Amino acid sequence: MIAFRDLPDDAPELDLCPLLRAAQMTLQYAVEHGGIELTQTKAFKRVFVHWAAEHINWPGMGYEELFRYNKVLNEYEFPPLEMTHFLLTQLKLGRHYKGRFKATKKGAALTAHRGKLFGELVPFFLLSIDHGSYSRFGEQPAGNWDTWLNVINVEADHGANEKQIFKTFYGYEASFAEGNWREAAVFSSCVLYPLEWSGLLDHIETKGADGLTERHYVKTDLWRSALSLETDGMLSAIQRH
């Protein structure tokens, strides 16, 4: 069973959630500027995409990274913003009206209540979105969020690398040499990356024995504050031991 706890608006752990920051800033911008201009395909116009790239400062996709190979930036070239736009409209926190994205009454109210905004946004993003639809391969890994979250709750309590986490679920270590790296890539895209976007996992990069970069994942303080899971009891037992 997965349960998300209610968090107060001043909980410092909420600062760890990039998706919350992107949603709050997008809604605030829409309120302060009378909406955000849309293209004919109903994407955010470049002027806002450029502003968002600079101010949201998404981990690994900051302004400098995004413009390293681009002179201009479209919404689809900034995937977290594209997802934020989609989530806000799906949750009816924003809507399209006469060529502009406007915050709804509910969306505008939640800009001042980020604990409640997190509660609206992140459970829906994790549990209801087809993460394979925007991943590199368009595939979903075998499994479900109840299993993934409860196992990662234990595995990443003191940190675990990407390969270890994958092997825990599927019983083998994926690698280029074995030709089964794609399964691990799909798992990371649909499970580990969404957890990072939600601020529940963080990673550091290290060099493995083969010289390739490895991601070492650890649960954040937001994970411990926001999630209530069946395996929490196992953590208490481990700590007592």
Rank of each mutant, 00 (worst) to 15 (best):
I36D: 01
Q90P: 07
I36A: 02
P59M: 06
A52V: 12
E32A: 14
T41W: 09
L73Y: 00
Q28Y: 04
F44N: 05
N70P: 00
L87F: 01
F44L: 15
I56R: 02
T89C: 14
Y69G: 07
P79I: 00
Q90V: 11
R46M: 10
V47E: 11
G34T: 10
N57V: 08
L66D: 01
P59N: 06
T41V: 11
Y69M: 10
T84R: 03
Y63W: 13
F48N: 00
Q40K: 14
I56K: 02
L93T: 09
T39E: 12
I36S: 00
W51Q: 07
L91V: 01
N70S: 11
R68S: 11
K42C: 12
M83G: 00
R95H: 12
A53V: 02
A53N: 02
M83D: 05
F78H: 03
F86A: 14
A53G: 03
H55S: 10
E64S: 15
V31E: 09
T41S: 15
W51A: 10
T41C: 08
G94L: 06
F86Y: 12
L81Y: 04
V72F: 10
G62E: 05
G35T: 07
I36L: 13
G35H: 03
A43V: 00
L93W: 06
F86T: 12
E54W: 13
K45G: 04
A43T: 04
V47P: 00
E65I: 14
R46G: 05
I56D: 01
K71T: 07
A53S: 06
T84G: 05
Q90R: 15
E54T: 14
R46F: 00
N57Q: 11
